[in-house]
Amino acid sequence: PKCKGCFKAIVAGDQNVEYKGTVWHKDCFTCSNCKQVIGTGSFFPKGEDFYCVTCHETKF
Rank of each mutant, 00 (worst) to 15 (best):
H25D: 03
C34W: 00
A12I: 04
I38W: 04
N16R: 14
E48S: 07
F29P: 03
I10T: 14
K59M: 02
N16M: 07
G47P: 05
D27T: 12
S32N: 05
C3V: 04
G39T: 06
S42W: 04
C52H: 07
A9F: 03
E57C: 05
V11A: 14
W24Y: 02
K8M: 12
V11Y: 03
C55T: 01
Q36P: 02
F50Y: 15
I38Q: 03
N16V: 05
C34Q: 01
C34T: 00
Q36K: 05
Y19G: 12
K2V: 15
C52A: 01
T40F: 11
E18P: 15
C55E: 02
I38P: 03
K35N: 05
K20V: 06
F60L: 10
C28W: 00
V17C: 10
K35Y: 07
K2G: 15
C28M: 00
G47R: 07
F43A: 09
V23P: 13
D49G: 11
G13I: 11
S42K: 12
G21L: 11
C3R: 03
G13C: 13
H56C: 06
K46F: 14
G5K: 08
K46W: 05
K59Y: 11
G41C: 04
N33W: 11
C28D: 02
G5L: 04
V17A: 11
E18G: 11
Y51W: 15
A9S: 03
K46C: 06
C3N: 01
P1D: 15
A12S: 06
E18T: 12
G41Y: 05
P1I: 15
G39V: 12
I10R: 10
C31I: 08
T40A: 05
F7V: 11
Q15V: 03
G41T: 04
K46P: 00
N33S: 08
Y19Q: 14
P1E: 15
C28S: 02
C55V: 00
F43N: 08
K2N: 15
K59I: 04
F50E: 03
V23Q: 07
G21R: 13
F44R: 07
G41P: 07
G41V: 06
V37L: 09
T22F: 01
T22W: 11
G21H: 04
I10P: 08
K4E: 01
D14F: 02
V37A: 08
H25S: 01
G5V: 05
D27N: 06
D49I: 15
G5S: 06
K46M: 15
F43L: 12
V17T: 10
G47T: 03
K2C: 15
Y51P: 03
T30A: 12
N33R: 01
T40N: 02
V11Q: 14
Y19M: 10
